[in-house]
Design a protein around this nucleic acid. Structure first.
Length: 250
DNA sequence: ACACGATCCTGACTGC
DNA sequence: TGCAGTCAGGATCGTG
């Protein structure tokens, strides 16, 4: 849809979401052809003729494709106008997300830090167990560490561990091979299911066509403190780990 | 090595 | 009604 189109104009409405200087970003991207767009864990890579744009949506970011030239919204931070006058809008309420022009996406340090992709890579349970050996860190923070498994955020970490029947408070180094097998199987299964249902819209998240996702209707524990556990009926508990909320039961 | 808190921001909601 | 406090799909950094 975007591939093969030329970026005619770039407007930056909030400089802090662009890692480069505004001048540098505009100069480097304006006039370039979009060659390929791909995902790498939570990053979006927009390959251009020369270099490319590395994007991250943070907590509240979205890319919206606009064909109708809707009025600019206050959260629209960067606007790419394409040669056919359609617009790719990087909209970010909290400005934790970012765009970064890089001469070479392949050697980005951010990307090099990433572990195997939980959705598409074949991850060996024994390799995970070996890597976690000796770690007393809790398994919830462990699987959310992008250097360990890339692509798992807070919603899906909770859902994966519940589905795998592994309590989030367990020590990573004490997870058995069978439990790692379940965690990795559920990582794939839940991320795939969430993708089929276009992701989880709790408040701000929208698809690129501005529609909401539907996976919120499939959540078992995330955000469900006090509600009956789908497996045992006891109330779901909420705790804090690494500054993030965790919900779990049995 | 890791737990913890602060930080970057804005908006929705709660309680007084 | 107003205002302070809390919380939210993330990642990084400093401190102990």
């Amino acid at each position: 849809m975007l591939e093969g189109k030329r970026i005619e104009r770039v407007e930056i409405h909030r400089a802090s979401v662009v890692k480069n200087s505004p001048d540098q970003f505009i100069q480097a991207t304006q006039g370039q052809l979009i060659r390929l767009i791909e995902r790498r864990a939570k990053y979006i890579l927009i390959h251009l003729e020369r270099g490319g744009i590395l994007g991250h949506l943070g907590m509240s970011g979205k890319f919206i494709l606009d064909f109708k030239l809707k009025p600019i919204h206050s959260h629209d931070r960067v606007i790419f106008t394409l040669e056919d006058q359609s617009r790719l809008i990087f909209s970010e309420i909290r400005c934790f997300g970012f765009l970064e022009y890089l001469e070479d996406l392949a050697t980005s340090e951010r990307l090099e830090r990433l572990g195997p992709d939980g959705l598409i890579d074949e991850i060996d349970p024994l390799a995970m167990r070996r890597r976690a050996r000796g770690s007393r860190r809790n398994i919830k923070e462990w699987i959310m560490d992008q250097a360990v498994i890339a692509g798992i955020g807070n919603i899906y970490a909770n859902e994966i561990l519940f589905a795998a029947q592994v309590k989030p408070t367990r020590q990573a180094g004490r997870i058995s091979k069978a439990e790692w097998e379940r965690i990795l199987k559920e990582t794939k299964g839940i991320l795939e299911l969430a993708l089929i249902h276009n992701g989880t819209s709790i408040s701000d998240y929208r698809r690129v066509d501005d529609k909401t996702g539907e996976f919120q209707g499939f959540l078992q524990v995330y955000g469900k403190e006090g509600q009956p556990c789908p497996r045992c009926g006891r109330p779901i508990k909420k705790i804090t780990q690494g500054g993030r909320s965790s919900w779990y039961c049995c």
